[in-house]
């Protein structure tokens, strides 16, 4: 199974799907062949609520990547299902972003990603 491909393909449903380990009942991110917690190899894919909170963020003011025009928000979001991931916070004025702010998933088309998961204020 090409888990990297599966991750991006499933996002085209408009929802975020992650691997889930039935053995230790935890979600796994990033995708891989074996559960990192209990080393079990039988992982399922399950859809998530898409809800979470901003764990931390930074406003990038100087960018070294030409395709990213500052300012923009690079953030870590804690999903309700107990997974933390890097993302952008979109559709939100820069001075309104706070640690702990509730957010929800939105998939956008960017560069070579047809459905890239970002987060917007709830």
């Amino acid at each position: 199974m090409d888990y990297r491909r599966t991750f991006w393909e499933k996002l085209k449903t408009g929802r975020l799907w992650l691997q889930y380990c039935p053995s230790c009942t935890r979600y796994v991110f990033y995708p891989r062949e074996r559960c990192p917690y209990c080393w079990e190899s039988d992982l399922d894919w399950q859809p998530l609520s898409g809800l979470g909170r901003v764990y931390s963020y930074t406003v990038v003011r100087v960018s070294a990547l030409p395709e990213f025009q500052p300012p923009y928000v690079y953030a870590l979001v804690d999903l309700d299902e107990g997974v933390r991931l890097a993302t952008n916070i979109e559709d939100c004025p820069l001075d309104c972003i706070e640690v702990g702010m509730p957010v929800r998933l939105k998939t956008i088309n960017r560069e070579d990603h047809e459905a890239l998961p970002v987060f917007v204020p709830l």
């Binding site: 990033y30 931390s56 963020y57 990547l65 690079y74 640690v99 960017r110």
Partner: peptide
């Protein structure tokens, strides 16, 4: 795969996330 699509600024953004938190 899972960070670069969001424009991380290498170590700068990592430590900025720590400082903010």
């Amino acid at each position: 795969d899972y960070e670069l699509p969001y424009g991380p600024m290498g170590f700068n953004s990592g430590y900025a996330l720590i400082a903010r938190r």
